[in-house]
Simulated scan of single mutants.
Amino acid sequence: MIDPVRDLASVREATDRLLTAAAALDSAALGEPSRLPGWSRGHVLAHLSRNADALVNALEGRPMYVSGDARNADIERDAPRPLDVQLDDVRDSAARYQSVASEESDWSRTVELRNGVKDTTARIPFRRLVELELHHVDLGIGYELEDLPDGFVEREIGFLADRFAGHHDVPTTTVVADDGREWTTGGGAEGTPVAVRGTAADLLGWLCGRRDGSALRITGGSLPQLPPL
């Protein structure tokens, strides 16, 4: 069940966790590559700041970004900043988002996100949590998929399984965690149903494009090729 108030508390905790970890870096480390192709750690932090502002825009009825090009330009502009400036921006933008989201009076209201995607305000805090948790991993500073809160991992696997459900390139796929939790995705492509098994962290890594799936056990066919997020 979606609980936006609980998710906002989780967003605050994830923000604090990321800021504490990033504060141990130095400005030189921000220029080093992150785990995202073409992005430095500075790019990742800049993106998190601008994403918080973009979600404020969405909640207040404005487009998240002026355009895709403007979004990318803002990230490129902000990526080279020194560590203290980056951390202040992540902290301040997060506070702005938290303030606006905490004032929401209608969690059933629909808002428009990027690329015409629409969602209810109740789901926006979890979307922000996903940005924080996965991009903390992307920084490559010791926080791994195995370190993510278990409840978050379960929800994000379910979210991504729903996202790929019925996709025309993905056969019917059963996703099974080693502890017995199970999800179903795909179903839009012809072919024999496939079962994909592994740890929850490895399953999430495959679904969100952070791992290649080589650690997973596949029955019924080959590992499905998932569309980009």
Rank of each mutant, 00 (worst) to 15 (best):
P63R: 08
V153P: 01
I124T: 04
V153I: 08
L134K: 03
D92K: 04
V117Q: 10
L113F: 06
Q98M: 05
R91K: 11
T120R: 15
L160A: 01
L129Y: 02
F126N: 02
D92E: 14
N72P: 01
V90T: 08
S99E: 12
L132F: 08
G116P: 10
V85T: 13
K118T: 15
L83W: 06
G68L: 14
G142P: 00
A94T: 10
L132E: 02
T110D: 08
D162C: 03
V56L: 10
D119T: 15
V153M: 13
E60M: 10
P63V: 08
G116T: 03
E144Y: 14
A70Y: 11
E131F: 04
S105M: 02
R91W: 05
L132Q: 04
D84Y: 02
S67C: 13
G140V: 10
E131S: 09
L59V: 12
R155C: 02
E76M: 08
A94W: 01
F126C: 03
L87Q: 13
V66T: 12
W107L: 06
H136C: 00
A122Q: 04
D119N: 12
S105Y: 00
Y97P: 01
F159H: 03
D88Q: 14
L129C: 01
E144V: 05
Y65F: 15
R127C: 05
R77A: 05
E103N: 02
D53R: 15
D78P: 09
D119S: 15
E131W: 05
E104L: 14
W107V: 09
H136T: 14
A79Y: 06
G68D: 11
D53K: 09
L55A: 05
A122W: 07
Y65T: 04
D106C: 12
V56C: 13
F152S: 03
R127W: 10
D88P: 05
R96N: 05
N115C: 14
V56M: 05
S105D: 15
S102Y: 03
D162L: 04
E104R: 13
H136P: 06
R114V: 15
K118N: 14
P125F: 02
R128D: 13
D147E: 08
V153F: 00
G140F: 08
D69W: 14
E154Y: 00
F152Y: 13
M64C: 05
A94N: 07
A101W: 01
L87H: 07
E103I: 04
L83N: 04
L55R: 09
L87K: 11
